[in-house]
Design a protein around this nucleic acid. Structure first.
Lengths: 210, 210
DNA sequence: CAGCATCCGCTTTGATACTG
DNA sequence: CAGTATCAAAGCGGATGCTG
């Protein structure tokens, strides 16, 4: 991207990550950690392979990511956020929180990968009972199951099904997201096709307010 | 901008404000409030006039800004952030904070408008003595003077010179910014060409830590 | 003059094909 | 698997022209 050439923090930040696709690459690395080229391509549907290669070069040159070459036994290289690149978490959280209302309806042409929900969900999820034994909430929507677990005072949303979930939340993505963010009471969510099985306390432990 | 077509808060946010120049328009409206077309053009050096018109249309269609038509006595229309658009303040703050280190050196080709400093500065400035009578710190760097005043517990950076400043900070932009963010002690700043006149308590009242 | 719209050369993107 | 190569289409940047 051509620099804005403005001595301004916002403009300088955009010089680094304002290119199309760049922040979505950062999103994938924030959610999934170290990723191979094909992991990134799969996690960012729509990106052209040449642009992915271009952006990875740009982001590495900017110091946002590093390319970790594989250890000798013919493995494959992975990409990782630098500590500075990790600092973009707050930017993506702010942007995700701002754009949250746009997720209330889902366009038919929108692709959904369940792990993307981790960004808006973790913004709202907490652990209201950190001294209690840990519980697991499985979330089923989109292309793969996810599960929420308490992690030192907060909550994290991880990929995959839970081994022995204490509760399971199912439904269309906007409904599931509404429940997780505390915007939709369970009763309303049920009327919208949502489904909850297990101890309601599990949900209350993680979600805001009521 | 072509939509990413991903059911993801970050992607949806970028669909709205990910176009080149869009967030710089928001920056201007956040710092300066209601602005006319030419105010925006002057505050965003480098933007082509047709692109400014395009982006204003897009942002209005997205619900980020509104166009306020002038009152009858032939005035001129102004652009204003909607309440939702104001929510981008947190995004720009996060991005500005992340990109802060990039402002430690100023490239000779960078344009500087002093009011842009308000974003990184206000991130760090507070009012440590809200019950004391208000004081004013004038900041002279770049193309126009600015001044810092306490505003209910926090601090705001406003355009223009102060009427009767209690202290005046002068220097090259990276030095002034270093002092305001608390990164550079005054002694170090002086060695870098910075200049401070007035009660040192005024600076301490606003800046973090020491 | 403020507030655009049009035109044109250039760069970036998107889609697909191909390669080590 | 991890990219590079190619090329049409879209977007950008800069200049200029038009309209109240």
């Amino acid at each position: 991207m051509r620099s804005y050439r403005q001595y301004c923090a916002v403009a300088k930040g955009l010089d680094m990550v304002g290119d199309r696709w760049s922040l979505l690459i950062v999103r994938e690395l924030l959610i999934s950690g170290d990723s191979r080229y094909t992991d990134l391509r799969d996690g960012i549907p729509g990106i052209a392979t040449n642009l992915l290669a271009d952006r990875l070069r740009d982001l590495e040159a900017a110091g946002v990511i590093t390319r970790i070459e594989a250890p000798p036994p013919v493995a494959t290289a992975v990409f990782r956020l630098t500590p500075w690149g990790e600092g973009l978490r707050e930017v993506l959280h702010a942007l995700g929180a701002w754009a949250g209302p746009l997720l209330r309806q889902q366009s038919p042409s929108d692709v959904l990968q369940s792990h993307w929900l981790a960004i808006p969900a973790e913004l709202y999820l907490t652990d209201h009972a950190p001294d209690q034994p840990p519980v697991t909430l499985e979330v089923r929507t989109g292309d793969e199951p996810m599960h929420v677990v308490p992690v030192d005072g907060g909550a994290r949303m991880r990929r995959g099904a839970a081994e022995d979930p204490d509760a399971v939340l199912t439904g269309e993505p906007p409904v599931v997201l509404g429940v997780l963010t505390g915007r939709l009471p369970l009763g309303t969510a049920r009327r919208m096709g949502g489904h909850y099985r297990g101890d309601p306390g599990v949900l209350r432990r993680f979600t805001p307010a009521g």
